[in-house]
Design a protein around this nucleic acid. Structure first.
Lengths: 116, 116
DNA sequence: CCCGATCGTTTCACATCCGTATCATCTTTC
DNA sequence: GAAAGATGATACGGATGTGAAACGATCGGG
């Protein structure tokens, strides 16, 4: 079953969710950071810097800095790949999972409220 | 009829749309700018700087600068209120409408692709 | 071995955004 | 009319993101 969503509803959904994120000043991620975080949590591991850079079509420093920022917030963690120590494996954290759970709940709520 | 969307689908939707916006380097707005733009286009006019600032829970300079940036891109326009010349009325533009039309289409596409 | 290739990080100069405080302009009140 | 209030814009200092280029660490083929 596909998700039926009309253009005007899509805009309202984005506005509502964006509004709730702007108002809660808690964790404000860049759009790029958000996409990186979602990719890490939605797609099968392992995740590497170059892999994410290729997927998003950005340079590697963008990924490194985004991981720095989100690591500081404990939303992701990094460790060296023991097999090939050049690689860095990006891993999920409890806090990151919780953050995305809450975020998705907010989206679902906003979606339900679109046409009560 | 409400829009049925499960948490995991919400996350995938956000990832897909965000990904397409990161890849297309065309117009990249801040989350706040996007919310401001959506509010201008979705809610009934007139829109003022202080009204938007209050709605978003941010300071007025944030709105002024966002309008500067989006005005430069011709996504919104400003004019003085002739009735009370202290006010600035924020207006829609053709380009802004087109931009949001395309954006909403992308969201709808991504939503349909969630569960084919 | 060792030298080139790969990977993630760092450096640099630049741009943008933020909040606070202040400003110029306009309106309202007395 | 003059003073007080309201409105949007601007100046400033600090924080953060960006792209390009260079760097150090590690791997692997000859």
């Amino acid at each position: 079953m596909s998700v039926r969503l009309r253009p005007i509803q899509a805009l309202r959904l984005w506005q509502e969710v964006g509004l709730s994120m702007v108002r809660r000043n808690a964790v404000d991620l860049t759009q790029r950071q958000m996409v990186i975080l979602l990719t890490i949590y939605l797609e099968p591991p392992p995740h590497t810097v170059r892999g994410l850079a290729a997927k998003l079509g950005v340079t590697k420093p963008v990924i490194t800095r985004a991981l720095d920022a989100m690591g500081e917030l404990d939303l992701v963690s990094r460790r060296r790949d023991p097999a090939d120590r050049r690689n860095v494996i990006i891993q999920r954290t409890v806090r990151g999972s919780l953050f995305l759970d809450e975020f998705s709940d907010r989206v679902v709520e906003a979606a339900v409220a679109l046409a009560p």
